[in-house]
Amino acid sequence: MFAQQLVNGLVVGAVYALIALGYTLVYGILQLINFAHGEIYMIGAYVGIAVLAVLGTMGLTQTSLALSIVLVFLIPMIYCAAYGITLERVAYRPLRNAPRLSPLISAIGMSLFLQNYVQVVQGARDKAFPNLLELGSFQLFGAYVNGLQIFILVLALGLMAALQLFIKKTKLGKAMRATAQDRTMASLVGVNVNRVIAVTFAIGSVLAAVAGVMVGMYYGIVNHHIGFVAGMKAFTAAVLGGIGNVTGAFLGGFLLALLESFWAGYVSAVYKDVFAFMVLVVVLIFRPEGILGGSGGEADRT
């Protein structure tokens, strides 16, 4: 039981963490909670279904599995990056110097709009995510582990490591950290702040798209509501770890999912969401800045 819940928790944690990174990166630079971020993740899952449908009719899923897997991630990533950049342009940039409540309301509005838009275009019913990876399962310390779980975990950890490397080592990554610490000063050394913000939204959206496709593959089912719950959980994870802190988002994602998973396994599956938010409340009472701290535009604290 313990090992099984651990495996389940790690897989869900990978998804939470990927989405939480998008919240935390944007918060770090704009001090804005992008409440429409969960919707980007949901759209990623839908685009994944569309890509699989096209690849299926072309017969590519049969002839070249590797290429299909690359495409089913890559196309939603590109699509969602465009969504994220557009979202910032349309809903947040015009309000950049407005009181902080205004972009927040705009974010909630965009979230509702995107949810309803997908409902209108794709229908309100659950959509099946075609099965692409037929991977066998095996037993490890008494837990059933399947290939898809390993795949999700490895891909998520790989992306997180790549993100850390990008932020720490590349010129653009350093510009992101500098912008998070002092936006005006970053522009005074020649950083095009608007471009950095667009890149930040793009990166967050790419990670959310990957999470969306993963969840589609994992549960086999997608609807236009999934962004709301997952977004709330990922936001909770980001706050838990310390919003604005990249490592915190990471840690918060896995921690929240593991706690949920063990609670569901040992206590009650019904109240697992209640438990998750209870943990948030308790943590915030004792550590208002989150486990690792780092609010106030310090996304650099990696």
Partner: peptide, 30 residues
């Protein structure tokens, strides 16, 4: 602002505004 820097005008603002969590070397690289 980035075009102004590109044209060769750079400002050292009031209060220094060092990037507090970047290292000294990274600040210089910025």
């Amino acid at each position: 602002p980035d075009d102004i820097v590109r044209r060769g005008i750079c400002q050292v603002p009031e209060g220094r505004r060092i990037f507090p969590h970047l290292t000294v070397l990274e600040n210089l690289e910025m």
